[in-house]
């Protein structure tokens, strides 16, 4: 009964939602970049710059959240879990940034069907992560949120399969060694995005279980 009278500090959820919005924006830009590679339809440097901008903006939100943690007597959920979740959302954006920066670094001029599929899976996972973070404060949406986390887990497993298939295709086709090296690294960076989404989804699940 007293918990209703305590200061509620909803700002934490607002900041986490804003943080996950940047993740979705970064994932969408990465998807457009991967799909547009070699087609000339997208301004690749502009998309790289866009992801970097989202990453910087997310960094600011993370700092603001950590400062707020130090200035709050009460937190709506466990203090450490808020900290962990914001760090994990940040890790997703850092992973997306690594993907887009690899395009310039390894001079990747065209995409593959598997790279496009991985990027689509990444965007899908980030979008579900965003929905899960937004639904986090609403206790009546717990089942739906846990479901979103399980879907992210399934998407990550699917991305694992796509990555294995992509690497097999690279070495079966007798392509150049340089191309195989570049794309192997690129796929692994793409897979890293999904892994980081899975980490964040697991934390959200833990929060929901602990607060049920």
């Amino acid at each position: 009964m007293f918990s209703y009278l305590m200061p509620h500090r909803k700002e934490f959820f607002t900041l986490l939602a804003a943080h996950s919005d940047r993740v979705v924006a970064g994932a969408n830009a990465t998807l457009r970049l991967t799909n547009g590679l070699g087609l000339g339809s997208e301004d690749i440097p502009a998309l790289v710059a866009e992801v970097n901008t989202h990453e910087k903006s997310a960094d600011k939100i993370k700092s603001e959240l950590i400062v707020l943690l130090h200035q709050s007597f009460t937190t709506p959920i466990n203090r450490d879990q808020i900290h962990t979740l914001t760090i994990e959302l940040d890790n997703v954006l850092n992973a997306l940034q690594d993907v887009v920066n690899a395009v310039g670094m390894y001079s990747i001029k065209e995409s593959t069907a598997e790279a496009r599929e991985m990027a689509a899976l990444g965007a899908d996972a980030c979008m579900r992560l965003n929905r899960a973070v937004i639904a986090l404060p609403q206790k009546n949406r717990k089942a739906e949120t846990i479901n979103l986390c399980k879907e992210i887990d399934a998407i990550e497993s699917q991305a694992d399969r796509v990555q294995r298939k992509a690497i097999t295709a690279l070495f079966e086709g007798g392509v150049s060694v340089w191309w195989a090296m570049k794309m192997r690294e690129f796929y692994s960076l793409q897979e890293n995005v999904l892994d980081r989404c899975e980490d964040a989804a697991k934390t959200i699940e833990e929060i929901l279980i602990e607060n049920s």
Binding site: M6, P7, R9, L69, H70, Q71, S72, F73, T74
Partner: peptide, 8 residues
């Protein structure tokens, strides 16, 4: 909690 709401 209200008096110290802006302190850790």
């Amino acid at each position: 909690a209200w008096l110290f709401r802006n302190q850790s």
